[in-house]
């Protein structure tokens, strides 16, 4: 009898012990995050542990796609006018999206605006304001109507320059998400310098993403939680320069050919990273009323941080918001 109660006592202790081992074991998240430099920014990939081979696949694919798109862009930019330049299926997709965003923004968003923004030193500097003569000369060349493309080729009517940087990074993220799915990974985050896709859930809860406050040390602007969607922010506080007390951001309006400083930041949630990326720039170029009209059509929640530091939530952003 004494022996029996002793055994059950130890059994009980044993189960308590195991229980706590399991509990404390949960503390380590079971995820691994790797950070590295790619596509002109810091990329952070979070995956369930023990996926080293997938990490490596993703890094290699990201470099390959980025090189491919950059090389194609350079070829097009360096090509003489009137010549047919062959393009990949990826680039054809990007051109179709360029036409879509151009149309959606009534011409404000235009990949040929790089003809002008390049004169200021964007995207990577050194920056300076070009003289009026130079701008005038180049304004005539820019314009989406000056390029024509088929699924296989593109040609330019003028000596313009294009840049798909506003949304091609998002497109690459989406292609990496496809690789994750093919490898049967259904939980993780790909964060390419603040362009994020959230795949699945983190164990038993949804991923939580904070929108950065441009004022250092201040609370996040908003925290959102969702699954199998992307969030991207375009702001005036990362890529810009100041000349004569005027802030020149990297976002240019193709109607006025000028750098635009409309908001401190615009964040968009969409089904794909490419769409969130493109729309964040499109919305940055528009006034609040126009954004409201478009986001209800595209069904994409928007968060705007205005120049006077007001927070505006549109098209259901608050549905994804969690307290923080």
């Amino acid at each position: 009898m004494r022996q029996n109660s002793c055994i059950s006592f130890f059994k009980l202790l044993g189960s308590i012990f195991l229980f706590f081992i399991i509990l404390t074991g949960c503390k380590s998240s079971g995820y691994e995050t790797r950070s590295f430099y790619s596509m002109g920014t810091i990329v952070e990939i979070t995956l369930p542990e023990n996926n080293t081979d997938v990490f490596e696949k993703l890094v290699a694919k990201m470099e390959e796609l980025n090189d491919k798109i950059s090389t194609e862009t350079q070829n097009i930019n360096n090509a003489p006018t009137g010549k047919d330049i062959s393009i990949s299926k990826h680039f054809y997709f990007l051109l179709q999206r360029a036409a879509y965003y151009n149309n959606l923004s009534s011409g404000k968003f235009d990949i040929t605006i790089y003809t002008i923004s390049k004169l200021y030193g964007f995207p990577e500097g050194p920056y300076s304001v070009p003289d009026n003569e130079t701008i005038k000369k180049h304004v005539q060349k820019a314009g989406f109507e000056n390029i024509s493309f088929t699924p296989k080729t593109i040609s330019k009517k003028t000596d313009l320059k294009i840049d798909t940087g506003a949304y091609s990074k998002g497109y690459i993220v989406d292609l990496l998400v496809d690789i994750l799915k093919k490898n049967n990974i259904n939980s993780g985050i790909i964060n390419a310098g603040g362009d994020l896709y959230l795949l699945g859930t983190k164990e038993n809860r949804q991923w939580r993403i904070a929108i950065k406050n441009p004022d250092k040390g201040k609370k996040y602007l908003s925290v959102v939680s969702f699954t199998n969607k992307a969030v991207v922010t375009s702001g005036n506080y990362e890529r810009y320069f100041i000349d004569n007390q005027k802030r020149y951001t990297h976002i240019f309006d193709a109607e006025t050919f000028e750098s635009v400083n409309n908001y401190r930041s615009v964040s968009v949630i969409a089904q794909t990273t490419e769409e969130a990326d493109g729309l964040a720039t499109v919305f940055y170029l528009m006034d609040i009323d126009e954004i409201g009209k478009i986001c209800s059509k595209t069904n994409t929640p928007v968060f705007i941080y205005t120049l006077d530091s007001k927070k505006i939530r549109m098209c259901g952003w608050q549905k994804y918001e969690v307290s923080h």
Partner: peptide
């Protein structure tokens, strides 16, 4: 700066 056990936020959009 990385916080290993920070559970609240999984990423920052900027």
């Amino acid at each position: 700066i990385k916080c290993e056990e920070k559970k609240e936020i999984d990423g920052i959009s900027q």
